[in-house]
């Protein structure tokens, strides 16, 4: 399977973008390669969050916890054990998904805001442990200088590794999005009562969605370690989780690719605003208010609405 699964119409731009991304590292400075790699990580994370938030309608407020669990799993396995590197890389998404299952089991019993607040609580428990357990997780210093294979330890290596993992993950996510399961999930988002009435096990679907999303968050965690070479408890902190939430909003909840755009905009803004001002969070806050008031559908959603991809519009009409 290749990019063919995307519609024929969008094949051209996607192929062009891919080719550009493959060639770019040989022409742009190292700093920009690094920024792009960070965007890949964050985009994957935002996409995984959007699976449950945008498509599932769940208030997944502490997605960063699973990202952090994935990253910490890799970091701990590489620094504390002598297992081959790939074992850590493979284990991390599964550990993240397992934690997602555990937390999800409690959360899906609740709805809406209670769901979100319970998740913040449970996620913060993980944060508190990582933050305090100096002998194991390195406490608030985190773990630095994680030994990586030479192939991916350079910036360019990390860039390509991230790009490949991102593309594979996106394809899988797209298949899930378009599968009957994805359709059911979106139906549950739009009307949980009716779905329950026609015999869909709402909670089970939500739980599976959480497990899948946390699995991908774990992959993003692996990528984070590859790109940064370190982990720290801030990854698990709830403020960061809400920032990912904002990325999804910025790109557009109800679109497939919106969160990628959201992540790219956020990371670029943060990087370049960071050069000129130390008040990045204020800029983020103002941006968020502007979004809430003027662009609740997100940038991508707005573009779709404004310039209309005919296909999507006809779909919307069908739905109504």
């Amino acid at each position: 399977m290749s990019k063919g699964i995307f519609s024929l119409k969008s094949f051209g731009p996607i192929a062009a973008l891919l080719i550009a991304l493959v060639i770019l590292p040989s022409i742009i400075p190292r700093f920009y390669i690094y920024i792009l790699a960070v965007i890949f990580v964050t985009a994957l994370l935002a996409m995984s969050l959007n699976m449950v938030v945008g498509h599932g309608g769940l208030f997944q407020f502490h997605h960063g916890a699973f990202y952090g669990v994935g990253a910490y799993t890799v970091a701990l396995m590489l620094t504390k054990t002598s297992l081959p590197v790939w074992v850590g890389f493979v284990a991390a998404p599964f550990v993240a998904a397992f934690v997602g299952l555990l937390i999800g089991l409690f959360c899906v019993r609740l709805t809406r805001l209670y769901f979100g607040m319970l998740q913040i609580s449970l996620g913060s428990l993980i944060w508190a442990i990582a933050f305090r357990w100096y002998s194991f997780t390195g406490g608030d210093d985190g773990i630095h200088g994680i030994p990586l294979p030479s192939l991916i330890s350079s910036t360019t290596g990390a860039y390509y590794f991230g790009l490949i993992l991102l593309i594979i993950s996106l394809i899988v996510m797209f298949l899930i999005f378009k599968s009957p399961f994805g359709a059911t999930l979106q139906a549950i988002r739009d009307n949980p009562e009716r779905c329950e009435a026609i015999g869909i096990n709402v909670r089970r679907h939500q739980l599976i969605a959480i497990v899948i999303a946390t699995f991908f968050a774990g992959i993003a965690g692996v990528l984070f370690v590859v790109v940064e070479g370190s982990v720290f408890p801030d990854l698990l902190f709830w403020v960061f989780s809400l920032e990912i939430f904002v990325m999804c909003l910025l790109g557009g909840w109800f679109t497939f690719a919106g969160p990628i755009l959201g992540a790219a905009i956020m990371i670029s803004l943060r990087t370049f605003a960071g050069i000129y001002t130390e008040y990045w969070t204020m800029i983020l806050g103002i941006m968020l208010i502007l979004l809430i008031f003027f662009l609740p559908e997100g940038v991508w959603g707005y573009l779709v609405e404004k310039f209309g991809f005919q296909r999507k519009k006809s779909l919307e009409k069908e739905r109504q």
Binding site: T281, M282, G285, I289
Partner: peptide, 14 residues
């Protein structure tokens, strides 16, 4: 809720 989050970010920097 997101508005109050934005408020938190702005007030923190203020």
């Amino acid at each position: 809720l997101l508005f109050t989050f934005a408020l938190m970010l702005i007030l923190g920097d203020l």
